[in-house]
Design a protein around this nucleic acid. Structure first.
Lengths: 116, 116
DNA sequence: ACGATAGTTCGAATATAGTCGAACATTGAA
DNA sequence: TTCAATGTTCGACTATATTCGAACTATCGT
């Protein structure tokens, strides 16, 4: 039988869920990891970025995992740009699906402020 | 040596973190579980409730776990009321610490709406 | 002091997540 | 077509979560 992968072009098609199919729990979970929250914050500020630009010293395989979680939660859209992958927040879509959520999360002070 | 628990009264004091010491990730994580999100929604609607009133058929030990996660994330305050424990949302405090967060989460449509 | 009720804690089993190196895939450029 | 650059996938390991029964604790009423 043919052992070669059929439709190898499918590998480069990066899948994104329709925003309607994303569950609230899923989004909250994706945002609950400090690494991923950091990525989202940076994307919110910088507009878009490659995976490696936001790795914070972590290995590629770890970052790839986190970006996948963000993608599957509908938070991030990834498009291929040459050999790199460009990521951007799905802000407008998220705003429709969960009004105010991203705004509130981005505005929040993540860590406990130092208390005397 | 004295093997008896000293200060056994401390056992009945239910501990709650200061709202300032709660991290955003922690809150998002606590809310990312459907069972806990359901509890929060019910508390938001009903004002307050005992643990067993919201168990949705789950065993006590499981619910106790979820309530502990909610407490440690600063979402819920538990006070003892006779043999029962009364829980209520720490809405005002949460609103100060993470403005708009709880409101937005409660307003959100949790599940994907049916799509034709 | 006893029993009934409501939760907590413990322990063990299972499940899910995060981490990271190594191998692989894709792209564009030389 | 070979190479360097950028991510993805795989596999293994570790860590953390969830679940639930059983034993325990606290509280109130009798």
């Amino acid at each position: 039988m043919n052992e070669r992968p059929v439709l190898s072009f499918a590998m480069r098609m990066i899948q994104h869920p329709a925003i309607e199919d994303v569950a609230l729990s899923q989004v909250l979970y994706a945002l609950s990891d400090p690494v991923r929250l950091g990525v989202v914050r940076q994307l919110a500020q910088g507009g878009e970025a490659t995976c490696s630009a936001l790795d914070a010293g972590r290995p590629k395989s770890s970052m790839s995992h986190h970006f996948r979680v963000l993608r599957e939660a509908g938070l991030v859209r990834t498009r291929t740009d040459g050999p790199a992958h460009m990521n951007e927040l799905r802000r407008d879509e998220l705003e429709r699906r969960f009004p105010g959520l991203l705004t509130v999360v981005l505005a929040a002070q993540a860590e406990a402020p130092g208390r005397t």
